[in-house]
Amino acid sequence: MVASGDPPALPAGAELAALAMALTTDTNKDPAAQRWALVATAGEQAAERAVGVCATFQMMNRLLDGVGAPVRIELHRLAAELGFRPDELPR
C-alpha cells in the first residue's frame, strides 16, 4: 500500500492517502479537497496533525537525501519489498 498508493486498512485510510499524495506531489497547490475530506472523516485536530506529519517528512526526506545518508543494512529487506536495491541507487 505504501508503494501502490492503495488506501491502508486504517481509520480514514483513504483520506490520509489522498492528503499525503496531494501535499507531496502538488508542491504549489492548496490541497483543499483532500484536507476537508479528512476533516469530514477524522475531525479537524486529526487533519491538522496529519498535515504536520506529512510536512515533517518533506523535511526529513530532503535532509537525509541531501546529506548523503546511506540506507541502513537493517532496511535492505524492506527495500527489496519496495522493489529496489540500495546498492543500485545512483549516489
Partner: peptide
Amino acid sequence: SRAQIEYLAARSSYLNECFY
C-alpha cells in the same frame, strides 16, 4: 494512532523517492 502517523511518513517518503 502510531499506525496512521507511520503510514503518512512512509507514503510521503515513497512519493519523494526517499529510501532512508
